[in-house]
């Protein structure tokens, strides 16, 4: 049996067969559990562009709210062949190579501060990059020779981070934003840039943001030197920081 060829210019969800568009969505509506609410969920799914939508699960959340799981067929397609996502261009070095690079090109300890800023309390991202034990077999920056890594933890106000950066003469700031509501991470991230400019140290630090909702493209708009999405490891960030320091003559 020959496999049907995927048309990359018209990609749609796969359920049981190619291009059947089968999609599952889940959401909560602020209405009491019942037949009316199920019908409301079904109609909403149709408005979302799902054909033959059917509510396969409805759960009473109490206080007049209901949770739904809906199946349906997505009508839309995406042209995968034209998609380009800018990524951080960095020749990732191994930990030992980064350490050698620091010794050779910078010749002193590199001071790096990491923090989850603003309201964000989810340190999983910054911990994976910074912590000694690292993540997924990749040691964190705290273990790097030639790096003085400080993890300031969660919900760090931008002002605190800036004050600490001045106190410790930081070379690089890593800011993590994992979970935020209503795009508050955007204004939180720009506020940090503005504060650094006001303190006159923006051009003296390598400024990096990271998190599942941050792309490298967005980083540019925010005023950061780089943005790392999910799937980045300590050595990616470390390589970028030390190479950028040399490029900008911050050594």
């Amino acid at each position: 049996m020959a496999l049907e060829k995927v048309d990359l210019t018209k990609v749609k969800p796969y359920g049981d067969t190619l291009n059947d568009g089968m999609t599952q969505v889940s959401f909560t509506l602020p209405v009491p559990y019942g037949d009316e609410s199920k019908e409301a969920a079904r109609r909403l799914a149709i408005k979302m562009g799902l054909e033959e939508a059917s509510v396969v699960e409805a759960k009473d959340l109490g206080v007049g709210y209901t949770y739904f799981v809906v199946y349906g067929k997505c009508q839309h397609t995406i042209d995968y062949s034209t998609i380009q996502v800018p990524k951080v261009e960095v020749d990732t070095m191994e930990k030992e190579e980064v350490e050698a690079y620091i010794e050779k090109h910078i010749g002193r300890d590199v001071v790096i501060l990491g923090a989850c800023t603003g309201t964000d309390a989810h340190t999983v991202g910054i911990d994976a990059i910074m912590n000694m034990k690292g993540f997924d077999g990749h040691y964190g920056l705290e273990r790097y020779k030639g790096m003085e890594a400080h993890n300031l933890g969660s919900q760090v106000p931008n002002e605190e981070l800036v004050a600490k950066a001045i106190e410790l003469k930081a070379d690089a700031l890593l800011v993590s934003q994992v979970v935020t509501q209503k795009d508050v991470h955007i204004s939180n991230l720009t506020e940090l840039v503005e504060l650094l400019e006001a303190e006159g140290i923006r051009d003296k630090v390598v400024l990096v943001c990271g998190g599942p909702r941050l792309s490298h493209e967005l980083a540019k708009e925010l005023g950061y030197d780089a943005g790392f999405g999910s799937g980045s490891y300590a050595e990616d960030v470390a390589s970028f920081v030390v190479e950028e320091m040399v490029k900008r003559k911050l050594g």
């Binding site: 955007i186 204004s187 720009t190 840039v193 503005e194 006001a198 708009e221 925010l222 005023g223």
Partner: peptide, 10 residues
């Protein structure tokens, strides 16, 4: 400018 950044007004 970009987003809500204002320091270029300096």
């Amino acid at each position: 400018g970009a987003i809500n950044r204002k320091t270029t007004a300096s």
